[in-house]
Design a protein around this nucleic acid. Structure first.
Length: 427
RNA sequence: GGAGAGUUGGCAGAGUGGUCGAAUGCGGUGGUCUUGAAAACCAUUGAUCCUUCACAGGGUCCAGGGGUUCGAAUCCCUUACUCUCCGCCA
């Protein structure tokens, strides 16, 4: 949610910058500004009425004490009239505020100035590419075939027990998952993050806070009986820890990391995108979240970007970093870097991480602020990134490291997996 | 799931329907004292909206929402949460 004050003072800038996201905001912004003005004047009227009523109520009390029943009665009549007026104004005010919020929530975050224009992922800017493609023979297998050959991931079993997109990991497959989770968490701890284990279900207020609600409601699983949503990412519970919180400036930056399962309905996905591990309804992810001072948040975004690159380096995966174009940028993000690893058998790039600066967009929704020594509370910046999402990392590891007899595990993982190879014997 | 009790400022904890934004204590901040520190003493101490260049002033906030009343932290309804007992249970 953008700040009203910002919109009031930067109407043209806001409209111009939102155009980079292919969002025509001109009408909406003007509506918002005029609704805000209406809100102010109505509030002023209401406040004046209430001030009068407050004064009168005190007088009535004193009149009763002094025994002036008659005057008190007259004042009561006057008070009733004031109260009636106030009631109407209040109703009007609430309606205006509701309309204002409704409109305000429709505005996406303003992209950072470095965000390139563009309509789709084809326009994303490749800012970094690293690592070499593995030299594989022609008869390489995609990860879903490797998965069944070595019996490490069972998609059919998942379909039987739950449905498509809910695989079972088995034997060395399950152990590889566990190894990756521990590896990612330990790396984050070394980098100064505090580990959390969050709830996997969240309430509506939390969904609103990070921006999943109201517009992405259809992407989350919903438990109607209890009005709870399954988290699509640990970002939601971890960031919402700070909903309605005023941090001390010295607490910044807050650096949290959490491993969680993530649940996504992925309505409308199809084809090769959903094959194997490429897109699941349930998957595991380690997420890093930072709450940062506005003056340092972009520097921090770079740090997070470098941290994630380091993980991929240790996993010896060829990867590239993209700066998302306006059209591909999410509703809530001001700047996002995507990380893609090369999956050698599918011969395509797979997104394994997305790291974003939301500036004050989420903080404004959830009233996440900080306060310095002497000063008013001000909105903090929120950032988060996957570090990393497991399934596509696993897909790339399996495909890139395969040979005729098995799959090699990168050495950084050996102490976590307890094995260096996946093969028929061990599976 | 059943029965009951509760939810007040950063924390603890008072509060009879009328000057309560709220006693008191702790904590925080500033100061006095001290070579320094502690102790003691003094002062100060939230959020939010609006008017204003500023000084200053007004409104709102005692879990959320609604109601009764001239007037509500205080009474009523409702939702959420917490605690206790019972039941169930990893």
């Amino acid at each position: 949610m953008l700040q009203l004050d910002f919109l009031r003072q930067n109407r043209d800038l806001a409209i111009r910058r939102l155009a980079v996201k292919n969002f025509d905001a001109s009408e909406l912004v003007d509506e918002i500004i005029s609704l805000d003005q209406a809100r102010k004047s109505t509030q002023k009227e209401l406040d004046d009425l209430l001030a009068q009523a407050n004064r009168l109520a005190k007088e009535i009390g004193q009149l009763y004490k002094a025994g002036c029943r008659e005057e008190a009665g007259e004042a009561k009549t006057e008070s009733a009239r004031l109260k009636q007026d106030a009631k109407e104004r209040e109703k009007q005010l609430n309606e205006t505020i509701a309309q204002l919020n409704e409109k305000l929530v429709e505005l996406p975050n303003i992209p950072h100035e470095s965000v390139p224009p563009g309509n789709s992922d084809a326009d994303n800017e490749i800012i970094h590419e690293e690592g070499s493609f593995p030299q594989l023979t022609d008869n390489v297998l995609p990860h879903w075939e490797l998965a069944s050959r070595y019996r490490i991931i069972d998609f059919e079993l998942g379909s039987k027990v739950t449905g498509a997109g809910f695989p079972f990991y088995r034997g060395q497959g399950a152990r590889l998952q566990r190894a990756l989770i521990n590896f990612f968490l330990d790396e984050a701890l070394d980098a100064g993050y505090l580990e959390y284990q969050p709830p996997l279900l969240i309430n509506e207020a939390s969904g609103f806070g990070t921006g999943q609600l109201p517009d992405k409601e259809g992407q989350m699983y919903f438990v109607g009986e209890d009005k709870l949503y399954l988290i699509p990412t640990a970002e939601v519970p971890i960031t919402n820890i700070y909903r309605n919180v005023i941090l001390k400036e010295t607490d910044l930056p807050v650096k949290n990391v959490a491993y969680s399962s993530c649940f996504r309905r992925e309505a409308g996905s199809y084809g090769k995108d959903v094959r194997g591990l490429n897109r699941l309804h349930q998957f595991d992810k380690v997420e890093i979240v930072q709450i940062e001072h506005p003056g340092r948040s972009y520097q921090t975004l770079e740090t997070m970007k470098n941290y994630i690159a380091g993980l991929l380096r240790k996993l010896e995966l060829p990867f590239r970093i993209l700066r998302l174009c306006g059209g591909d940028l999410s509703f809530t993000s001001a700047l996002t870097y995507d990380f893609e690893v090369y999956s050698a058998a599918q011969k395509r790039w797979l997104e394994v991480s997305s790291v974003s600066n939301f500036e004050t967009f989420q903080a404004n929704r959830m009233k996440l602020r900080f306060k310095g020594e002497s000063g008013k509370p001000q909105l903090a910046h929120t950032l988060n990134g996957s570090a990393l999402a497991l399934p596509r990392v696993v897909a790339a590891l399996l495909e890139n490291n395969q040979d005729e007899k098995g799959i090699s595990i990168p050495s950084a993982l050996h102490r976590y997996t307890g094995f260096a190879r996946i093969d028929d014997q061990k599976a």
